[in-house]
């Protein structure tokens, strides 16, 4: 007779809601209402961060100066997802990329769409495709498509 180890089943379902802070709220309002992609500039380091953050990790300055970084950028790197998992946001195959927006010094992780996965390349110029019904989060950008 085959003996199996006993298990006690468990499951935790915990809802969360995350406050984004004043600075990022302003950036997300601009994204939602005007399709403007905003980063934050550190005047000391002369760097623009996207996503925006309230403190510069290099010089520890408080950051307040939101600047538009534009909806166009460059694929720094990417990967193609072929297998299916319940947590995935869409049906495979789909492409994740790190996109450096033209006005930013940092890259934003997002999807790359409207292109065959095999045709995506590093250095590819892309631009944001916005949702029609925007809610004030980073998924108001549906994905980036080739320019």
């Amino acid at each position: 007779m085959r003996q199996e180890p006993f298990v006690v089943p468990g499951k935790l379902v915990v809802p969360y809601r995350y406050f984004v802070g004043r600075l990022a709220s302003k950036a997300l309002i601009a994204l939602r209402d005007d399709k403007k992609v905003m980063g934050v500039r550190c005047p000391t380091c002369n760097l623009t961060y996207m996503p925006p953050r309230s403190t510069c990790g290099r010089c520890f300055s408080k950051l307040e100066e939101l600047v538009e970084v534009g909806d166009k950028g460059t694929v720094l790197t990417y990967t193609v997802v072929y297998h299916k998992e319940p947590v995935h946001p869409m049906e495979p195959p789909f492409v994740y990329g790190l996109i450096k927006l033209d006005g930013a010094d940092t890259a934003l992780p997002h999807f790359i769409g409207e292109v065959e996965p095999e045709k995506v390349s590093i250095g590819m110029k892309v631009q944001a495709v916005f949702k029609d019904k925007r809610e004030g989060n980073i998924l108001d950008i549906k994905y980036f498509k080739p320019q």
Partner: peptide, 12 residues
Amino acid sequence: RRPDVNQVELMN
């Protein structure tokens, strides 16, 4: 409640 800050800003 601190709806005015995110987790990182609170620690800051």
